[in-house]
Design a binder for these strands. Sequence first.
DNA 1: GTAAGTACTATACAAAAGGATAGTTAAATA
DNA 2: TATTTAACTATCCTTTTGTATAGTACTTAC
Lengths: 134, 134
Amino acid sequence: MENTVTKENPEEVGNHASSACTKSLGECTKSILPVRDALEVLSGKWKLPIIISLMFGNKRFSQIAKEVPGITDKMLSKELRDLEANELVKRSVYNAIPVVVEYSLTEYGFSLQNVIAVLRNWGTTHRKRIMGAE
Amino acid sequence: MENTVTKENPEEVGNHASSACTKSLGECTKSILPVRDALEVLSGKWKLPIIISLMFGNKRFSQIAKEVPGITDKMLSKELRDLEANELVKRSVYNAIPVVVEYSLTEYGFSLQNVIAVLRNWGTTHRKRIMGAE
DNA sequence: GTAAGTACTATACAAAAGGATAGTTAAATA
DNA sequence: TATTTAACTATCCTTTTGTATAGTACTTAC
């Protein structure tokens, strides 16, 4: 409503808009693909929180469960398997009595450090924003 | 199996691990929360791709649909509404004949630029990694 | 023997996300 | 009159994600 405007010069609407992306066909789409590759591995509610938890040090199953708020055993078990399959997390079994299973980040997992840092910064300002708005 | 180790010094297992996070209770959990705030707004397969598409310029509905590979009208419509609710995207209606609806990023939407840049970098190297592995 | 802890797995189910297809309104075009 | 385009909405369906609850194997503690 506020943005409704009577059209005086029709050809201007959305023109500068499309030009940037229509010039070379698919430039915009090409730029989306690597982000989708990243999202495929990281998407969902739990993967990044689990990775963050492991950035603080190697952990056992139940420790991660305690530190990632709200996660259930089933989800944690599933997500750890996914992360292991993508070589972001390593699972080490120690033949102790009783058996001890320790999870750690791989080097590759640590390569997500700046992704997480940037996301945390954005999340922090975003939280302030919504808090302030209410 | 490869990581199975006979336990000689039991107290070493997972010790340096937990210490970092158990020292001050919840330090690790606290670090997770802002990332969850960010994920709440950005999660899903489509939101970031749509935002990227709009970083290339203002667009109409069907243009975005063309540029974001695989998205359906229903998903695009829903995600645009979500993004608008979070003030990342602005919807402008022009009283043209026929009516023209244009979507653009808000300033706040543009604040995601470095999030996307970092994610794109990571995604690019990740893609190389999986391509090379196969 | 019973209970408790660790690291899970199994089952059943509910909710959310995503996909396929079709329909709507309204004007413009053939 | 029929078709096309734009910008959706509606319906139905499948998949994924998430929740709740229970169970298992093993060992130590009471």
